[in-house]
């Protein structure tokens, strides 16, 4: 237990985080590349076509992982904000700062693929379907967090304001989701959940699971990489960063 705590404590120090993430990051990049490659080939070429939607259903393999990630990233961003607010761990805030644009991109991917998927399925680019509507609101939430962080001239105020907003947002996300679901009850049941047995045959959901895992690995790797850059940027005047850049030791 003590060992774990000291590890977490060390992670809070930018220098240690920089060192540890350097060792972890390549694994996540490799895992992400492998999983996404396998999932893509399987999903695009080998999974059977849906009996109703035909081959357009293959959009699910990018739509659902992006939608999963869009929601998870907001939650991780809020958790990072909480860690930053409570324990004043700066690395947490740096991670939260780089997660926001990443989450916004994922939300956009899921919105775009959802809209494109709508053409063969519903015959229109946009339908006020519960899931698309929730995603659109989530995109606005992300944009709000990003804009708020950028609006402050002091970085620390911006960080704390964005943390508060992320926490307020994460409390609201389930409420928004359920109220939108209630508002538009005519929606497909959740495609895939970890707890219940999926209704899709194995050949269909196995590649989906692989893609979801791949996207998560991609998110972790990209977050680590950009957090490392953020550390360099914010700690540029620290001795260890200067040594790293070839300065006097």
């Amino acid at each position: 237990m003590g060992k774990i705590w000291s590890f977490i404590h060390k992670l809070g120090s930018p220098k240690w985080f920089y060192a540890i993430s350097a060792r972890l990051m390549p694994w996540f990049w490799v895992a992400a590349a492998a999983l996404i490659l396998v999932g893509s080939v399987w999903g695009l070429a080998f999974a059977p076509a849906d009996y109703q939607q035909g081959n357009s259903f293959r959009i699910i393999y990018v739509h659902v992982p992006a939608a999963f990630l869009a929601q998870s990233i907001f939650v991780s961003m809020a958790v990072a904000g909480l860690v930053f607010m409570v324990w004043k761990i700066k690395v947490a805030d740096m991670a939260a700062a780089v997660m926001a644009p990443l989450g916004a991109v994922m939300t956009f991917i899921s919105l775009f693929s959802g809209a494109v998927w709508g053409v063969p399925t519903w015959g229109t680019w946009w339908m006020w379907d519960a899931r698309l509507t929730s995603m659109l609101i989530l995109l606005f939430l992300y944009l709000g967090v990003i804009a708020l962080r950028g609006a402050f001239s002091s970085r620390d105020s911006g960080s704390r304001a964005a943390s508060v907003l992320a926490m307020v947002g994460v409390i609201n996300i389930p409420i928004i989701k359920y109220s939108v679901d209630w508002w538009y009850t005519l929606h497909q049941p959740a495609t895939f959940s970890v707890t219940s047995r999926p209704a899709m045959p194995l050949e269909m959901w196995a590649p989906l699971l692989i893609m979801v895992l791949g996207f998560y690995c991609f998110f972790i790797a990209a977050t680590l990489m950009r957090t490392r850059s953020e550390i360099l940027r914010r700690e540029a005047n620290k001795r260890w960063v200067r040594e790293l850049a070839g300065g006097p030791s």
Binding site: I36, S40, L44, A49, G54, N55, S56, R58, I59, V62, H63, A66, L102, V105, F108, I109, F112, S113, V116, W117, V119, P120, F218, A222, M225, R226, S229
Partner: peptide, 28 residues
Amino acid sequence: AMGGHAPYVWASWGVTGALLAGIVLHAR
């Protein structure tokens, strides 16, 4: 051809791929 759904499938996958690649390139 994707059974006639080529534009939709490839547009979705293409935009996703481009954005993911963009994230990687931007981070690098």
